[in-house]
Design a protein around this nucleic acid. Structure first.
Lengths: 361, 361
DNA sequence: AGCACGAGCTAAATGGTTTTAGGTGTTCTA
DNA sequence: TAGAACACCTAAAACCATTTAGCTCGTGCT
């Protein structure tokens, strides 16, 4: 029973060793020495000894007392998706520098799981939330708002709720992509999207629809049921392409749909862009390196991350203020990055209805 | 001043409403009613009322008291790398089901950052650690061991330290890959790896070296300095390939090196596999879809995740036991997935192992 | 001398739970 | 009928910090 118990140093130990009160130690450690009129001499002694023994306050006790955990809950759709992974990584980095930690979780766009995660974060007393909202979670978000906990949504927003959010103008992205295809002489353009009715998906569809409407061209829209079964999705897209053989171009509304789409196209042994031009909403390593390289509507990842964390930290800073900060709504523009997959090759262009337009910029 | 203050329900409120002591409520809630001889009648009343008002204990207070946070710290090299992202995702899923939360962080393989992260996790009182160790962090790991906090390493291990770990037999992977290339008639095989001397990288190199030694063939090894500057890395690989034009095959020791390598190869307008066969250690979406598809040494991601979490949860379960559990060392086998990038095409195969002036078939 | 005042510090309450060592009242035994 | 045995519950300490109200002293002023 003679265990050598290595007791962690407590504030008490510091205080009794220095023969001051624990209040003094705490005040000094929290930079309140001046305002509490602790003499410099004492403050120095405390600091020196704390440094010497390497005392670190127990965060749990601290959080219990102050109600602040310095933890931010980050809820994304899928952390293994490069888009979310990159944004998360940038957010983490910035937050870390300013003394906040991030807890990530993936929702898989599952409403029930999102609910659980949010309630778990509540239990963990996170100081703030960054959320990519799944469908039908207005209630939990309202809960967060009522508790006046800082919150920023991104990638999508909930139209009925007064929250901060950062989104990308997807409508504009798909509109420009569609215009680009039309300018290249493609006219039977299909749009493949998910079965989700979430606002950002609908907007991407609208951009496409708008561009075609302007040219009085018909739309060909496929809504793919997103399941765990990758092969089913690929097969579904494959059938769609076969059933719409007249189409000469496809826009996919997300990066993972594009990846499935590329597999489908490859199974069908169609050539890109000669048989079928392709554009993806959202970039991916793969698209840069694919042969041919895939044209994408790129989201300003860095800017999204920066805005998200800036707004959240701002809220956090003013959290104790009487008046709530005004809600911020940031809409960023995507960029069309033209690559081979959407360019008429010389041979085809000659036969095409329109001459190819010069590449961007 | 007439703020409508919505006080959270406390255990106190429950107790006084039911006119029992808070001890009773706590015992019932923690399933200790029987062993503390609380009557079923009282237990039922407590449970019913707790349910009714939706009382949730304050986790901070609970953790402060019990010393358990039900949080696991997961430290990986780079959460945006699909390998780590996938493993992390699987671990998170399993842990969540068993009541544990995960906090992720990326080290970027930076020793200093790893140190900070581990010490941050210590401060947060995580119940256990899952770590992909960067170089020179033996000291912090020793700290964790001394505190008897459950710990599992994966992807690599620290040879001098008695820890649990799950690794993949990289030596075997590269050995088989090299043999495969030799069997295909490639004989001037280069190996591109990082400048890190970490054990898993060294082992991958050894497998390659061993296979070549058996055939008494010379080695061509390139150690790339891994920096933030992607273009520099690509340029470096590009120069290496040019300087070793005699090589007819390359094995890359990580998935990201392969990706940079593919860019380099593409810049040089070399054809895979006719001019240069390619094999990547570690799989990636990109490699499946690339043209030609890239042969890979695939790591058993699912099995890694399962072993990691199983061992950790086991440790967590027996944590309060007197005797420590024996350390577990799991070595999993990788799988060579042969794709086009390492197969002699019919035309080239005919001309044998010399570098072909390949006519495309 | 008496009093106000500021400088410098501290006692004690507080945050919300878990858990141990009893306390109380009833029934059973001798 | 005393005492043991038991069933059922509770008081209070413990976890470890922050923070507020207030205490003590020495000084300066009248």
């Amino acid at each position: 029973m003679s265990e050598k118990v290595k007791k962690r140093t407590l504030i008490n130990d510091i205080a009794s060793h220095l023969e001051v009160s624990i209040a003094t130690v705490s005040l000094v450690l929290n930079g309140k020495a001046k305002q509490s009129r602790i003499s410099d001499a004492v403050a120095q002694r405390v600091l020196a000894y704390v440094e010497e023994v390497g005392y670190k306050p127990n965060q749990l006790a601290k959080s219990l007392r102050t109600g602040k955990t310095h933890v931010i809950g980050l809820v994304v759709e899928d952390i293994s998706n490069p888009f979310f992974a990159t944004v998360a990584w940038m957010i983490e980095k910035q937050a870390f520098e300013r003394g906040y930690r991030i807890i990530y979780c993936s929702t898989d766009n599952n409403t029930e799981k999102t609910r659980e995660l949010i309630s778990m974060f509540q239990e963990q007393h996170v100081d703030g939330y960054i959320i990519v909202p799944a469908e039908s979670i207005e209630k939990q978000i309202t809960g967060i708002l009522r508790a006046h906990t800082p919150l920023v949504l991104f990638d999508r927003y909930l139209p009925d709720l007064p929250t901060n959010y950062i989104v990308v103008d997807g409508k504009r992205g798909t509109y420009e992509a569609t215009q680009h295809l039309l300018a290249q002489g493609f006219s039977k353009i299909a749009f493949v999207t998910t079965d989700s009715l979430q606002i950002q998906m609908e907007e991407r569809l609208q951009g496409y629809a708008m561009a075609l409407a302007e040219h009085q061209l018909p739309q060909t829209v496929k809504r793919v049921a997103v399941t765990k079964d990758t092969n089913a999705i690929i097969a579904d897209i494959q059938r769609f392409i076969q059933a719409n053989a007249q189409c000469d171009a496809i826009i996919f509304s997300t990066n993972y749909l594009s990846i499935y789409g590329l597999e489908a196209i490859s199974h069908l042994a169609l050539r890109i862009p000669d048989d079928l031009a392709v554009i993806s909403y959202d970039d991916h390593d793969l698209f840069r390196l694919y042969t041919p390289a895939i044209t994408v509507i790129a989201q300003p990842v860095e800017s999204i991350a920066k805005n998200v964390i800036d707004i959240l930290l701002e809220e956090l800073k003013h959290h104790s203020d009487k008046a709530p900060l005004p809600m911020q709504h940031v809409v960023l523009s995507p960029t069309l990055i033209v690559r081979k997959s959407s360019l008429r090759s010389a041979a085809t262009a000659a036969t095409g209805p329109k001459k190819a337009v010069a590449s961007k910029k």
